[in-house]
Design a binder for these strands. Structure first.
Lengths: 249, 249
DNA sequence: TCCCTATTGTCTATTTTTTAGACAATAATT
DNA sequence: AATTATTGTCTAAAAAATAGACAATAGGGA
């Protein structure tokens, strides 16, 4: 494989993706752990080819790590502090992994390329966690879902990026009707409510939540779901894709 | 002056600023016209030094064009299509201005630098139009305020950038209480309402608008403004800077 | 089979917020 | 002092959000 520094990327510009999933009543984020001594976690990220749009680049990075392409994806913020670079984390990494660097894993040019200042475009993605088979990179030891409330400390400003992504998700949730991207195709009203509660980290009133969701007119009611529990069986619902409104000319 | 291509900028990354002002009951945008034959308008923009944050760069660009530094400024979106470059507009510009290019205004290297693909970070700014003395660049013929409803056709995707900026402004206006940045320090309730009407391009009910604004608890009522008109004199108000809420630790 | 329990779906009452209508106050002008 | 065009604010009506209540029901257990 060509070394990073010689590939045809836009210089000093990167993309970091906060990939949200939902499982066990918890909002989770996908994070690879680097295959080096020292417990380095990061956000899935990458660089932008000269001949692809930033949106395409984000989709490519996402597909590489999740195996799926049909994903809700939105840019939310640019992180561009002057001091924003890998230099500190790379220093620690090299220090703890001298033996690897004696081999030719990174050459000097590669190292310099990686430790320059980077401006990073933050994207967040919403996925059905069951559809995703997380994939390791060449440099990953593992890749796992972490509850947003128990994220490991990540490199650089990646924890801050997750925070800002969550803020944006909360702000957009009602506006854009995107929560459904985190659920499987069919779900009960309780599933949906618990998802909202996980995202906003606060309880909602069951009766009013149901009314609010039904009043959106985007839910199609399907058959009942018999759980085996000794109580009334809940209906299953499916998100009904909205016909896009005609925009003013 | 050093040619662009040799200055210490981040490559292929730019900033474009939509500077909003308010005058004559109209929302306006500041746009320089380039000093070339062919009527080329653009958004004020620039590049990012290696040793400055993107936010600092945006402030610098703004100060260069408006003379003021204390400005409401917010990034709102990244424009990163693969085909996004000056190449088309530079082609036309060169064609129409051959005589200038026979001199050494741009050298070949400079031209290549400028016509590469650029990813641009969109910022929007809100200014008190009376405090601004628009300043030309080296390459500007003039710089003026244009009503948002009568903007000239600008180079590249700059008209689209303005549209997205306006969308964001509308979405943020109530949330963040930022409208006041467009007004002078003191203003009447009618001034404020007309500003809202200009931004949203729709009328508001006077009684309810006044109630809503007063209920925000951010307006300090000052003395009356005697206009000389044969009717009740309106109060002047001042935006009362909010004490920042304590954030959860 | 028949009650019991936990949960679901929905209805109604209450409260809050938004919108619409009305009117007194007032700064010149006549 | 009456007139006029605005301004500031109040109240009524409508709409939306919140809280409380209850019937329906899928099993479980006597």
């Amino acid at each position: 494989m060509q070394p990073l520094s010689e590939r045809d990327y836009i210089q000093q510009l990167s993309i970091d993706c906060v990939i949200f999933g939902y499982q066990d009543k918890q909002l989770k984020v996908l994070s690879p752990k680097l295959d080096f001594k020292g417990d380095f976690w990061a956000l899935p990220g990458g660089f932008i080819h000269q001949q692809e749009s930033i949106h395409e680049a984000a989709f490519r990075i996402l597909e590489d790590r999740t195996g799926i392409r049909d994903i809700y994806l939105e840019q939310f913020r640019v992180f561009g502090d002057a001091e924003r670079s890998n230099v500190q984390f790379m220093g620690r990494l090299v220090e703890l992994n001298r033996e690897k660097f004696d081999s030719h894993l990174f050459n000097r040019k590669e190292f310099e390329w990686l430790t320059r200042r980077f401006v990073s475009i933050g994207y967040y993605a919403l996925v059905d966690i069951n559809k995703v088979v997380p994939r390791k990179n060449d440099i990953d030891e593992s890749i796992d879902w972490y509850p947003i409330k128990a994220l490991p400390t990540m490199i650089m400003d990646h924890n801050e990026i997750v925070e800002k992504a969550l803020e944006t998700l909360r702000a957009n949730l009602d506006q854009k009707l995107i929560a459904f991207n985190l659920l499987p195709e069919t779900f009960t009203m309780k599933d949906l409510q618990e998802l909202y509660e996980a995202i906003f980290d606060k309880p909602f009133a069951r009766n009013n939540f149901q009314k609010k969701m039904l009043d959106l007119n985007v839910l199609e009611r399907l058959e009942k779901k018999y759980t085996g529990a000794a109580n009334k069986a809940p209906y299953l619902y499916r998100f009904q894709q909205q016909a896009p409104l005609l925009e003013a000319v």
